[in-house]
Amino acid sequence: MANITLGGNPIETTGSLPSVGSKSPDFKLTATDLSTKSMSDFEGNRLVLNIFPSVDTGTCAQSVRTFNEKASELPETKVLCISKDLPFALARFCGAEGLDNVESLSDFKTGSFGDDYGLTFKTGPLTPLLSRCIVVVDKDGTVLHTEQVAEIADEPNYEAALEVLK
Rank of each mutant, 00 (worst) to 15 (best):
T13E: 02
P18W: 06
L129Y: 01
V102G: 00
P10E: 13
A61V: 06
F42A: 05
N101I: 11
V55G: 05
K139Y: 13
S35K: 12
N50A: 11
C60E: 02
L34Y: 15
D26N: 15
A91N: 13
G15S: 09
P10Y: 00
R46Q: 14
E151L: 09
V55E: 04
V136R: 02
V137D: 13
L105R: 06
N68H: 10
F42E: 04
S22K: 12
D85V: 12
I4S: 00
G141L: 02
L29G: 07
A61R: 11
F88N: 13
P125M: 05
E163Q: 15
N9C: 00
Y117T: 10
K139W: 12
C81M: 03
L49R: 01
A96N: 14
K166C: 04
G21V: 07
A61E: 11
F88T: 12
S19Q: 14
L17P: 02
E155A: 14
G7H: 13
L47R: 07
T32A: 04
A31L: 08
G8R: 08
T57M: 03
K166W: 08
S112W: 12
Q148H: 14
A61I: 09
Y117M: 09
N9T: 11
S16Q: 15
C81L: 02
S54M: 08
I11S: 03
I82D: 09
K78P: 01
K37S: 10
S16W: 05
R132F: 07
S104G: 14
L90W: 07
L80T: 05
E155P: 11
E73A: 15
R65Q: 11
K122H: 06
S40K: 15
L105V: 05
P53G: 05
E103P: 00
L99R: 02
A89L: 08
D100I: 01
E147C: 10
T30N: 03
L49F: 11
S22C: 02
C81E: 00
S16D: 15
L6K: 06
L29M: 09
Q62V: 13
L90M: 13
P75H: 09
V79A: 08
V149G: 10
F42D: 07
S83K: 03
K166I: 03
P87Y: 12
L144R: 12
E69W: 07
T127V: 15
S35P: 01
S112Q: 15
H145Q: 06
L74P: 10
H145S: 10
S106D: 06
T146Q: 07
S131R: 10
A161R: 03
I51P: 04
F67I: 03
E76N: 14
